[in-house]
């Protein structure tokens, strides 16, 4: 198979993969009873009605984890071509990769020292 055929497979796969889980839901929509009432449709809470807005404000710590992840995600993307070509690279390339990883490890150490990784 050539490259475009391979990706045609993935394209058809994506389309079919959406259809198959939709089938049981559609079937359930026909078969299952439908008797909604106000109490049944209530948002689930601990037994009393839910108070206030659902979108309560969260602490920023979650967001910091997200940002740290993003930085590492981009780093890994850069490392994949390096790893892929590694068999034909020399010690210089190893050094280049090492420096790349090392610079980012600095960022991790900084975050660690600044206690940005603590759950507070």
């Amino acid at each position: 198979m050539n490259v475009i055929n391979e990706w045609a497979f993935i394209g058809v796969f994506v389309a079919i993969a959406w259809v198959i889980p939709t089938l049981p839901i559609a079937l359930a929509a026909f078969v299952s009873p439908r008797k909604p009432n106000a109490i049944k449709m209530q948002t689930y809470e601990c037994g009393v009605e839910t108070v206030g807005d659902t979108w309560v404000q969260f602490k920023v710590q979650y967001y910091i984890y997200g940002l740290v992840f993003l930085v590492f995600d981009v780093e890994m993307i850069f490392l994949f071509p390096w790893a892929l070509a590694y068999n034909r690279l020399d010690f210089f390339a190893f050094g280049a990769g090492l420096l790349f990883i090392f610079l980012l490890t600095d960022a991790l150490i900084y975050a660690w020292r600044k206690r940005a990784l603590e759950w507070v």
Binding site: V60, E75, F78, A96, L103, L104, Y110, K114
Partner: peptide
């Protein structure tokens, strides 16, 4: 550019931590 990208990412992370905390 490969190494500079790494420095850029490091700077981005440090900046994010400085701003967020």
């Amino acid at each position: 550019p490969f190494e500079v990208a790494s420095i850029l990412l490091t700077a981005a992370m440090i900046g994010a931590i400085v701003i967020a905390r």
